[in-house]
Design a protein around this nucleic acid. Structure first.
Length: 508
RNA sequence: GUCCUCUUCGUCUAAUGGUUAGGACAUCGCUUUUUCAUGGCGAAGACACGGGUUCAAUUCCCGUAGAGGAUACCA
């Protein structure tokens, strides 16, 4: 088993945008594969034609690409085990279903939905579990209850049928989960799940097992919602004679709503201001769902915060590059319990990555918000503004609005400062001080600061009484970056103009 | 209802048959910066409950409760 090359797959169905829980599943699969020098496959599970959503597959590709999760084998990437889209593999599944029928491990069922409902109601009325199982199947219309002639006739007539697995009536099914240890089910609790649907297409269960086997998947890393169907999958491996190639299972804990009430859903996300999708998604009905990218999250921050939501390293390290995660990750250290999504911590992560972002990265992050005035003073100027302000925000897209005054004359003036600190005396001091800066060509932050000190000393006043009004006159703001650095960047000419305007607008 | 899974600070989590139960986010102080933020220091804050086993249980076992998941010809 340990000799087996690691091949894992992320197997979403293209029914809409990728959920953040799915993204984390993809991430864990990726980390596991890379750590073991294995392959990370992307398989599109589109066996349900009714739920097909145009654009969803491309969305999945783009999301993984945005996060830097490189797919080794997939629809776009190709590979030796293709095709990697189930709708292109449809001819291979049915044979296995019929083979199982031949071997008495499955059977044809001809029941209508109404008949199945009637059966369930009957059972419920008797306080019994309402399922198509070892007991109830004997009173239904299937190849176990009908004569072989009747069955043959129905099949030849082209009557609708499904193939159901024939589960043992009372048998223990156990399997080992890397995260949870041994898990035991009894087949009496399971039902005879449909393997092949009326339209001739396989259900998830059949397609999944056949493909995992044929693609030589070594480990199935998926969400906890699959735990209840895992015994069915184990039975399928057994029935198909593939038990020796059965992958090892690891069922990941769920990502829950911040209030802990259920899985994080699109609706919650919109309500609580938490993106649940990596990228913005436009549904066919025009509804728009926000994405991490559009909310200002950086991909490496999302990777980091998602990795930590359900996994923890042996030490207390919090910040990881994806390569460091590849080194440190292990399924054994994935926790068992569901994790509530904490938007505050998510913001903190983004802030950390913002602080260490390079100029180029910052420029990319804000490029969509850029207006002509932002680049009027050149890119170097813009970068300095970004660097100066990034430590104050959680998201890159908050920087520009915070620093409007770097690009245009102040339009608003903070009233608190105006009322408390702005008076004729202060206004005159500021005018004189700035005038002296201009005359002496004191254009650097250091010179400006030194001169304010000496100016205040000469006047016998505390420079502190001038600093906030000075900032206010130049930027209109009560706070901001270090004032002299801000002034150096804005430049003497503009400072003089701004002080003049402030005095005119707020003459006292 | 039934089955499965889970349960340590508000949140994400670490560790352990004997610890002052550790870290991070958030909160609150103090500090640096005459702003804000960053940084630094600090405070407060948790073993769901009840039984066992044991010299000793947060840790092992069994119950109870709570939470989540699954119960489709969806994945």
């Amino acid at each position: 088993m340990s000799e087996r090359p690691v091949r894992v797959r992320f197997a979403p169905s293209p029914t809409g945008p990728l959920h953040i829980g799915g993204v984390r599943t993809a991430l864990y699969n990726y980390l596991f594969a890379k750590q073991h020098g294995g392959k990370f496959l992307l398989r599109i599970e589109d066996t349900d034609q009714k739920r097909f959503v145009p654009g969803a597959e491309e969305y999945i590709n783009q999301s993984l690409a945005w996060l830097g999760l490189k797919v080794d084998e997939g629809v776009k990437e190709g590979g030796d085990f293709g095709p990697y889209k189930q709708s292109e593999r449809m001819d291979i599944y049915a044979a296995y279903a019929h083979q199982l029928v031949l071997e008495d491990k499955a059977y044809y069922a001809f029941d209508t939905p109404e008949e199945i409902n009637a059966m369930k109601e009957r059972l419920m009325a008797n306080n019994m579990a309402a399922k198509y199982d070892a007991i109830s199947r004997m009173s239904m219309k299937n190849s176990l209850t009908l004569s072989s002639d009747e069955v043959k006739e129905k099949l030849q007539n082209g009557d609708d049928f499904v193939v159901r697995i024939k589960l043992p009536r009372n048998e223990e099914i156990r399997f080992h989960d890397i995260i949870r240890g041994w898990i035991v089910f009894n087949s009496s609790q399971l039902d005879d799940k449909v393997l092949l649907k009326g339209d001739g297409l396989p259900t998830y269960h059949l397609a999944n097992i056949v493909d995992d086997y044929k693609m030589d998947i070594s480990h199935v890393i998926r969400g906890e919602e699959w735990l209840p169907s895992a015994p069915l999958h184990v039975m399928l491996y057994r029935y198909l004679g593939w038990e020796d190639k059965m992958p090892q299972f690891a069922h990941l804990p769920l990502i829950l709503r911040p209030d802990g009430k259920g899985k994080l859903s699109k609706r919650d996300g919109d309500k609580l201001g938490i993106p649940v999708f990596p990228l913005e998604w436009h549904a066919a009905d025009g509804e728009k769902s926000s994405g991490y990218r559009e909310s200002g999250f950086m991909p490496n921050a999302v990777v980091n915060l998602l990795a930590m939501l359900g996994w923890h390293p042996a030490d207390n390290k919090e910040l990881f590059t994806i390569d460091e995660l590849v080194q440190a990750f292990s399924l054994e250290r994935v926790s068992k319990s569901g994790a509530k999504f904490d938007i505050d911590k998510a913001k903190w992560y983004n802030h950390q990555y913002l602080l260490s972002a390079t100029s180029d990265e910052l420029l990319i992050l804000i490029k969509d918000d850029l207006e002509p005035m932002h680049t009027a003073n050149g890119q170097e100027y813009l970068v300095k503004v970004l660097d100066m302000l990034k430590e104050k925000v959680s998201f890159a897209n908050e920087i520009l609005p915070l620093g409007e005054y770097f690009f245009t004359l102040p339009t608003k003036y903070d009233e608190g400062v105006q009322n408390k600190k702005w008076n004729p005396e202060v206004a005159n001091h500021i005018h004189d001080y700035v005038n002296e800066l201009v005359v002496n060509k004191y254009a650097s932050a250091t010179e400006m600061e030194q001169h304010l000190q000496s100016y205040a000393d000469d006047c016998g006043i505390n420079k502190g009484t001038l600093m906030q009004p000075l900032r206010w006159a130049i930027s209109g703001q009560a706070g901001g970056p270090p004032i002299f650095e801000m002034m150096e960047l804005i430049g003497l000419d503009s400072i003089a103009e701004r002080v003049k305007i402030a005095r005119m607008k707020h003459a006292l």
